[in-house]
Computed example of a mutant assay.
Amino acid sequence: MFYILSRLFACTASPWLYILILLGFACFTAKRKVRIGCFSVALVLFLFFSNGYFYGLCLSAYVKPYITDFNAIGHYKYALLPGGFTGYDKARERTDYGFAADRQVDAIELYKLGKVEKLVVTGDGASCKDGNVEVYLDQLERVWGVNREDVIIEPEALNTFQNIDYSLKLVPDMRSENTIVVNSAIYMRRTLLSCRKLDFYPAYYATDVNLSRKWTWQSWIPDFHVMDEWMRLMHEWIGMIAYKLNF
């Protein structure tokens, strides 16, 4: 039920949805003032959601509380990596990496530095039931130099809450204050909420974010790619609502 509810809420995460609704209503209404109002609001929404500067401000406010210093990370037995950073290309029999690949890169760096002993990968594309665990583990060992004996795979999770829940059931020892969660900064708030729901209080490190970006006059030029970034952020806001309703 929770998974279905979160999926339904996610459908409302696109700024384009609201812009198109307003434009559609403006096209079919007979009232001139309402039509002008709908077109005006749609224009304002477009200019706002295609603006990189406004997006940067909102993203920074949302993730800044979870940004920590990589060099200050201590020693942990487990690094827990919620899935979503790889996929499996069946045609080429290869692991593909997405925008969140920093989760794995940073976790491997912690592993190489001796700060974590084992990587727990949960619900990820390349190592889930529809992926290929052997190909994924082979690449980790051959390319990244990670001993496959130090990698624990949880292949069933479909969302953030299941990432934490299923991993704790698979590796109960993670509750012993010896775990650090490595996840994208934009998802960290929801990740830690799931942890608290399960009475689990790990350390954490947020990845995939750059808050030092300099904004110029070009940031004010409408950019359709920013709309995609907004969709991810809005998905998180809506996801938080769904989690709070259930928790």
Rank of each mutant, 00 (worst) to 15 (best):
L5I: 15
S6P: 01
R7A: 07
F9H: 04
F9I: 15
C11N: 11
T12P: 01
P15Y: 09
L17A: 09
L17M: 12
Y18W: 14
L20Q: 12
L20S: 13
L22F: 13
G24P: 10
F25C: 10
A26S: 15
C27P: 02
K31P: 01
R32Y: 09
I36R: 15
C38T: 04
A42E: 08
L43V: 13
L43G: 15
V44K: 03
N51M: 07
N51H: 10
N51V: 06
Y53Q: 09
F54I: 09
Y55W: 15
G56Q: 10
L57K: 14
C58S: 11
S60H: 05
V63T: 10
K64S: 15
K64G: 04
P65A: 01
Y66Q: 05
Y66A: 02
T68H: 02
D69C: 03
A72R: 14
I73M: 10
G74T: 09
Y76T: 00
Y78I: 04
L80T: 11
L80R: 08
L81G: 01
G83N: 09
G87V: 04
Y88F: 15
D89K: 12
K90I: 07
A91S: 13
A91W: 03
A91D: 12
R94S: 11
T95D: 02
G98C: 02
A100P: 02
Q104F: 15
Q104D: 10
E109N: 12
G114W: 03
E117R: 06
L119Y: 04
G123L: 07
D124L: 06
K129W: 08
D130K: 13
Y136M: 11
L137S: 02
D138E: 13
L140G: 00
L140P: 00
R142V: 07
W144T: 01
N147H: 10
E149N: 15
V151F: 00
N159G: 00
T160C: 01
F161L: 08
N163Q: 02
Y166C: 02
K169T: 08
L170P: 06
L170V: 08
M174T: 03
R175Y: 10
I180W: 04
A185V: 09
Y187S: 12
Y187V: 06
M188E: 09
L192K: 11
S194H: 03
S194M: 03
C195W: 03
K197T: 11
L198Y: 05
D199P: 04
F200A: 05
A203R: 04
A203V: 00
Y204H: 14
Y205K: 07
V209Q: 05
N210F: 03
L211N: 05
W217I: 14
H225I: 03
E229S: 15
W230F: 12
R232M: 07
R232S: 06
L233A: 11
M234D: 06
W237Y: 14
I241G: 00
A242T: 13
A242R: 10
